[in-house]
């Protein structure tokens, strides 16, 4: 068992090294001020989009718990299975028609649309894991409507926080929809893409490594936190 674990760790490290070590050796970090602006824009708009996506995902997840409503779930989750450039194309008429192209509102809208399946899926799984008996017990002791929903939310608070973090990262990492809808304000995905097209891989390697470092740090923290929450 220990040998197998050591082997798995080796594979993981080899994979990670393949992505990072040659890049670190070949290019010294060359971060520009524009990158930091893009990073800040993306972080702020991701937070805004998450604050919309998670409540909406929660409400839809709760509302589609009854068997008769489950068939409505794909109306929210279909964006997972469509290329995000196509999502951008689908959103374009409403955004362009409203004069929102290349605005923070368009970026936020795209983020919400692509991240909604994330918050919805995590929370629906968490609600479903409570079991039908949970709701029936609550209703049986006289808890009604919003009281049931709030108690379920308290029971799934770990999932709620995980959903928020994963949703935030889904927003943060989006590119496809932005290319069609809103290349400005500049987001990190668009920054890396544009710089790569203009100047090649070298100059944006520092930015890519910085994004990787941020993602890894948060992934480790998330893993550690959920492990702790699971053992409580």
């Amino acid at each position: 068992m220990e040998r197998l674990q050591a082997f798995c760790l080796f594979i993981a490290l080899a994979y990670f090294s393949l992505l990072t070590v040659p890049a670190l050796i070949a290019y010294s970090p060359s971060l520009e001020a524009t990158f930091l602006d893009a990073l800040l824009n993306t972080a702020l708009l991701s937070t805004l989009a998450t604050s919309v996506s998670v409540p909406v995902g929660t409400v839809v997840a709760y509302g589609t718990l009854p068997r008769s409503w489950r068939l409505t779930a794909p109306l929210v989750t279909f964006t997972v299975s469509v290329p995000h450039t196509a999502i951008g194309v689908l959103l374009a008429p409403s955004v362009f028609g409203a004069g929102l192209a290349d605005t923070a509102a368009a970026v936020t809208l795209a983020m919400v649309v692509v991240s909604l399946p994330m918050s919805f899926s995590v929370l629906r799984g968490a609600f479903a894991s409570l079991g039908v008996g949970y709701v029936e017990f609550l209703r049986g002791i006289g808890v009604r409507g919003l009281g049931v929903a709030l108690m379920m939310l308290r029971s799934t608070r770990t999932a709620l926080i995980s959903a928020s973090l994963l949703t935030w990262f889904r927003c943060f990492s989006e590119l496809g929809a932005f290319l069609i809808l809103a290349q400005r304000p500049l987001t990190v995905g668009v920054y890396v893409y544009e710089e790569f097209l203009r100047r090649g891989a070298g100059p944006v390697t520092g930015a890519s490594l910085a994004l990787l470092a941020v993602a890894l740090l948060v992934a480790f923290l998330l893993e550690r936190w959920t492990e702790g929450a699971g053992s409580r």
Binding site: G133, E136, G140, V143, M151, R154, S155
Partner: peptide
């Protein structure tokens, strides 16, 4: 909610 019946379901419930 309005039935004067107390109910314990099959699976144990743990409120938060």
């Amino acid at each position: 909610e309005l039935r004067p019946i107390g109910y314990l379901p099959q699976h144990q419930v743990s409120l938060p």
